[in-house]
Computed example of a mutant assay.
Amino acid sequence: MTTTELIVTATAKKRRVGVRRAGRRTAPALYLFPVPALIIYVAFFIIPTLQTFQYSITNWDGYSAAFDYVGLKNFGRALTGDTLFTNALTNNMKFMGVVVVGQTAVALTMAVLLMKNTKTNVFLRALYFFPTILSSVSVGFIWKFVYDPNYGVINSILGSVGVQGPGFLGDATTAIYWLAVTQIWFHAGMMIVIFVAGLQAIPAELYEAAEVDGAGPWKRFTSITWPLIAPAMSIVVAYTTIQSFKAFDVVLSISGNPPSRALDILSTRIYSTFANSQFGYAAAESVLFIIFILVAVFVLRRFLRLIQRGES
């Protein structure tokens, strides 16, 4: 091939590459496609959130055109002068502690046992995942029947063998913990799926090498599984923490409206405040609600990292 032919061929190739690159350029009109979604997001999330902060420093009742700005008075009232709010916060902390620890432990244990993709394990994963597709109201009514002290399933079985069953939701000191059991049953299946995905991403060669070195099951778990499951663990802890604050529908369906003082958590307390036309005060409670969730997620994830690094 002559020099001229080589030059022509190279030029043709450059032109073809240029045409392909030009074809890959994003048309400016395509940038307009996210605009409708962005407008909806701003209109129904950003603006209402900012309005919540605005109303939190007012005494607006939700109906009147006029209202007064009261500064941080609503926040001080919620944190120091409202026993209903502090009771709901205490209940929520107990509820969150049991749910985060219990649900994470149950889900991780089951995921380790069901990690291999056998037919039996796949079936059991689907079975454990089933409760998560039920509606929250359905779950609440199911467990309300289970916990019923008179004709509930558990007490009926215990009564048939002459054992006095517990009071469940009727016992103010333990009711919130029984509610946590319901929450764990409801969401553990989804956490199992997340953990299984994280476990299957760990290279099998690491376990084989550890086994050759004589490491037992517990040593392999603490040295390989636990450190490498950190990304999945972070997702589970964050999700579980948020869900423990948002268990509004489960609480109302299992306890009724308004819920008993023993089962009142922050989300139901805020709802009751809105229902009493104290919109300004409820907005302040909502702001505190957001802050508590952010702090709880941050602290738990930080604590988890310290444990996994062996610094705690």
Rank of each mutant, 00 (worst) to 15 (best):
A175F: 00
N59D: 13
G23D: 15
S138L: 15
D61V: 03
L228V: 03
F248E: 04
I254M: 10
Y55C: 00
E5I: 14
F303C: 07
S156K: 09
W226S: 06
F67K: 00
P259D: 10
F53R: 02
W185Q: 02
T26Y: 06
W143G: 00
L30C: 11
N74L: 14
I242V: 15
G216A: 07
D148K: 03
T104N: 13
A188D: 05
R261K: 14
G62A: 02
S136C: 04
V299E: 00
G81T: 13
E211F: 14
F123M: 14
L206Y: 13
S56Q: 08
Y271Q: 10
S244N: 05
T268D: 01
D171F: 04
F168G: 01
G62D: 05
P227W: 01
A204F: 06
E311Q: 09
H187G: 04
S64R: 02
A232Q: 06
A22S: 15
G310E: 04
F53H: 04
V146A: 08
I202L: 11
S272T: 13
F186L: 10
Q278P: 08
F298Q: 03
I184A: 07
A88Q: 03
D171M: 05
T2A: 09
A230Q: 11
M1H: 12
D68G: 11
L84T: 12
V161Q: 04
Q308H: 05
I157A: 15
S286H: 02
D264W: 11
L30Q: 13
R25Y: 11
I291F: 14
R15N: 13
T86P: 00
L124Y: 10
V100L: 10
F141K: 09
L108S: 05
T222E: 06
A283D: 12
S253V: 11
V250S: 05
F44D: 13
L32Q: 07
M96K: 01
V236S: 07
F130R: 09
L127Q: 04
A107Y: 05
V299N: 01
A180G: 06
T109K: 03
T49E: 00
T222K: 08
N91K: 01
Y69R: 14
T26L: 13
V100M: 12
F303R: 12
L228D: 05
D264A: 15
K246W: 08
A201C: 04
V146P: 01
F289Q: 02
N87G: 15
